[in-house]
Design a protein around this nucleic acid. Structure first.
Lengths: 126, 126
DNA sequence: CGGCATCCGAGGGGATACTG
DNA sequence: CAGTATCCCCTCGGATGCCG
C-alpha cells in the first residue's frame, strides 16, 4: 500500500491558509503543548503548573497562558483571597483541541525508541 | 502509556520524559508541521517544497529537512542527473505521524473562526 | 501567591553570494 | 537544481528584582 492510497480530509488551506498557520504556530510553540497536557484533567493553579512543566520559567508560563487565554482555549479564574489564588482551566474549545494534542503526545511517547535509534544510525553513518 | 511521565515528572533528573519532549519540540518547531503536510501525498522535490511552504527560506528548509531525515521521519533520494534531482518522502514512521499531524491541522482549519472571534472579544474587553 | 518590568545573552532565521 | 557558507539582525527566553 502506497502513501497515495491513504485519503486525508483536505482542509481548504490553499485559499486562506494564513489564519490556520497562525493557529498552528500558537499550538506548536515551545510551551503550549505542555500546558495543554498539564490542564487535561481539570483546573490547575499557577505555581502547580510551573512545577509540573519542567524547565518553564515564570515569564514564559505567564506569556503562554495569556496567549492561550486570548485565543479562548483556556480560562483564568481569580479567587480574591489572601494570598490570591488563580486557577487555569481548559475551555470547551480548548478541550476539543485536547484529543489531537494527546494523539501527538501519545505518538511521541510510543515512537521515541524508534527515533532515538534512527538518530544513532544516522550519526554513525555520516 | 506512560503519560504520567509528563504530568508528574520527578523533581530530580528525569531521564524518561525528556526524549518525549525532544520529539515534541522537533515536531512543534516552526516549519516541520508544514513540511509534513506538504509531503502527505507522496515525494516532493526540493524547490517544489520551497514553493509550497509559503515564507520558508532555503536555509531553513534545508536545516529542517536534515533534522527530520536524522529522526528517520523522511527519506532523501538523490537522482544523479544533470541537473540533479532530489526527492523527499515520508518514511513509514513519518507516515504514522501523519494522522496526528493532520488531526491538528484539521482542527485548526475548522476552529479558526472561533479563535479569531475569541481574540476580538479579548482585545475589546481589555 | 501570582504576577509584571527590565536587562541581556544565545541562537533562530533571513538575505545574499557562491558551488557541484 | 539543490544545496553550502557567511553575515547579521532581532526575537525568544532566562535571570533578577519589585509589587498587590
Amino acid at each position: 500500500m502506497t502513501l497515495s492510497d491513504i485519503e486525508f480530509p483536505t482542509p481548504s488551506e490553499d485559499a486562506d491558509c494564513r489564519p490556520v498557520r497562525e493557529i498552528l504556530d500558537r499550538i506548536a510553540d515551545k510551551w503550549s503543548l505542555y500546558i495543554f497536557v498539564a490542564l487535561k484533567d481539570g483546573p490547575v493553579r499557577f505555581n502547580a503548573l510551573r512545577r509540573q512543566i519542567d524547565g518553564i520559567s515564570q515569564r514564559m508560563l505567564t506569556i503562554t497562558l495569556r496567549q492561550l487565554e486570548r485565543d479562548g482555549l483556556i480560562s483564568r479564574t481569580l479567587f480574591p483571597t489572601i494570598p490570591p489564588r488563580v486557577d487555569y482551566e481548559l475551555t470547551a474549545v480548548g478541550r476539543s483541541l485536547l484529543a489531537p494534542v494527546m494523539a501527538l503526545v501519545t505518538w511521541a511517547d510510543s515512537n521515541r525508541d524508534v527515533i532515538e535509534e534512527a538518530r544513532r544510525q544516522h550519526d554513525q553513518t555520516r
